[in-house]
Amino acid sequence: MIHLETQSVQEGEVNNLVQDVPGQFFNMGKTIYLRYQEKLKDQDPAMVTFKINAAGEVQLTRQQGRNRSQMFFVVNKKLEARYQTPYGVVPLITVTPKMNVTLSEYPVSGKVSIDYDLISNGQELGEYKIRLHFTA
């Protein structure tokens, strides 16, 4: 089960979302994957995958119809991201001032907390927070 809380602040407007969704957990070597379907009002569902490596670095992939975003999070780093649309790729940058990943083996569970800024063409698009808690 996955408990997800997100917050976005764009042009002064705050949006919060809280969801409890079933998901899948699997690991390959020292990397774990969490996958779930995100359902938002008035939108097609999106398949979301979190990839967390042993160093605590996080990759977030979100596929919704023909749109696909892939973002990377490492504390205090600016990292290139991609947003693929039917019209082409939009280059993005994530800046992650705060991130914490806590994993437990018995029972398998974890918490992921990410605060990040999203930038496109030198302009900040917004500030975002992800709080994810899971148990397998």
Rank of each mutant, 00 (worst) to 15 (best):
I93D: 02
G65E: 08
E57V: 12
R82Q: 12
V58Y: 00
V75P: 00
L79K: 08
P107G: 03
D44R: 05
Q84K: 12
G88Q: 11
F50V: 08
E105D: 13
L60I: 04
M71V: 07
R82Y: 10
V74D: 01
A81H: 04
E105A: 14
M47E: 03
Q64N: 04
T94N: 00
M99H: 09
Q43S: 13
A46L: 01
F72Y: 08
K98Y: 10
Q43W: 11
I52K: 02
P91N: 15
N53E: 02
N53P: 06
P107Y: 05
Q43Y: 07
Y83R: 02
G88K: 05
N76H: 11
K77T: 10
V89T: 15
N53D: 14
I93H: 04
S69P: 02
M99Y: 02
L92Q: 00
I52L: 10
S104R: 15
V75F: 03
V74S: 07
F73K: 00
V74Y: 02
T102K: 14
V90R: 03
M47R: 03
S69C: 09
E80R: 14
A81Q: 01
N53W: 05
D44N: 07
Y87H: 13
Q64G: 00
A81N: 05
Q70D: 07
P86T: 06
S104H: 15
T94Q: 01
P97C: 09
P86A: 07
N53Q: 03
P97M: 06
P97I: 05
S69G: 03
V90F: 09
Q43A: 14
N76T: 10
L103Y: 11
T102G: 10
Y83Q: 00
